[in-house]
Design a binder for these strands. Sequence first.
DNA 1: CCAAAAGTGTTGAGCTTACACCCATGC
DNA 2: GCATGGGTGTAAGCTCAACACTTTTGG
Lengths: 271, 271
Amino acid sequence: MSERTTPSGASAAPVVPAVAGVLLAVSTVIFALRPDADRVASGGIDADHTAPSLPSLWLPLVRRIRPPYEGQWALPGGPLQRDEDLEAAAARTLAATTALDPNYLEQLYAFGTLDRAPGDLDDRVVSIVYWALVSSDEAAQSARAEGLENVAWFSVDDLPDLAFDHDVIIEYALWRLRNKVEYSRIAHAFLGDVFTLAELREVHEAVLGRTLDPANFRRQIESSNSVVPTGKRVTGTSYRPPRLYRYNNSAEPVDRGPLARTTVPLRKPQP
Amino acid sequence: MSERTTPSGASAAPVVPAVAGVLLAVSTVIFALRPDADRVASGGIDADHTAPSLPSLWLPLVRRIRPPYEGQWALPGGPLQRDEDLEAAAARTLAATTALDPNYLEQLYAFGTLDRAPGDLDDRVVSIVYWALVSSDEAAQSARAEGLENVAWFSVDDLPDLAFDHDVIIEYALWRLRNKVEYSRIAHAFLGDVFTLAELREVHEAVLGRTLDPANFRRQIESSNSVVPTGKRVTGTSYRPPRLYRYNNSAEPVDRGPLARTTVPLRKPQP
DNA sequence: CCAAAAGTGTTGAGCTTACACCCATGC
DNA sequence: GCATGGGTGTAAGCTCAACACTTTTGG
């Protein structure tokens, strides 16, 4: 059974001979939440056949200007640089696309099947894909900004034709996002520094695609210690002003297991 | 913010120029379960300071015969071949180490920090790591087999010094295994075609490190439809003979989300 | 009959869910 | 006052952990 490669020489080590013909790229699926009001005409087709005015997920794509798949949309990404961490590469392409720092960034999966690119290409590409969450209002600004010519934002339930296997990748990223929102505390990454519980609930509702009981949601969040009240309230409402909360940095930091804390800050500290 | 790399050219595509100096390797963390009886002297130090006779997890390692880390133990693995799927590469190194087909094989994580290898090396290595489960009795045979000179099996709570960051990798793989056993149906991958509920429970107990109530465990498994009774029973016991069960292939296949079914069979079909 | 493990029944604690109801603000 | 969403209370229902109890075999 051990034919060419003997076990003794088969270790994941830098001493192994370099393999030619395999390219290593890093891509990122970047999620933001579009408030249902404030519709930005930025490329996505705005069919509102969705539920009664829930915010919806959207993400930025890059139009390819070279074959293969020239003219089609693809995930932001690029080749891994020689002296660059994987996560740094993801953050770099994210910045190049949205001019933003992510509030959350995590590795998604490494895609490396042989059929990922059309057969007329010599090189094979292995893509290590990350997924990220960015604040909705900052993303809205970024989406309107100049200087990002071939970038456009799309609703996740109205995506264009995508290059390579990027449709599968996005589907998988969505699955992970929905899963993780249920058992983890990442929803705040769509919001700003402070937020109301109603805003946080709407994030959950939008991601999960169903409405949640406000009373039960409040208790669930409060008992999880995810957030701490700031003492302040929203002003100028025509109803009882809601309390403002802040993410609780000292609580359990999501769940990445024993993987060491990474370099990209999940949230810029506030003064 | 978009400095050198413009978004328009930054897509995970085969057209990007090749990056020299980055090697791509695939490694695998292979788990089996050692029955507490039948102790094989195969390299692992058999300190029995563990709980009263629970089976324990063990895994095969490969002794490095070249610098760096010469003489130390490392995960089985090797460079990715030009025409080889990632998963196929993992299965290949698994076969080279254990001469077995895995009952379960899943991607774990891509490790790619810059400090993974000692500084005196020119090349940087990105390792895509898989984890696998193999049947205990088959693994026990394999561990005794000849022809695998630099391979030895170790108990996960008594590992030797490891090369590179492989200690972190194993710790993460263990975390994933324990997590997944709780919410998924993978424990049967440690067992043979048919098994009793007590055997399945012992797998859970060994992985989770605590005893489980037999009555509640039975109900939990039965309500999950994970297994189907074969109608047969164990014979030759000195007590009431337990029923034999079989894994239910038609039920929800673990949980990999929308990732397409892969090429490696999780369980050879029985006639 | 006895020991041992398979397998069943039952009960209470705790958590989730649904929903009734009160509170505070702008108009 | 009244409309509106913020916020609290509470009871039914479900799941899960603990453990008593019955069953079936070999000796």
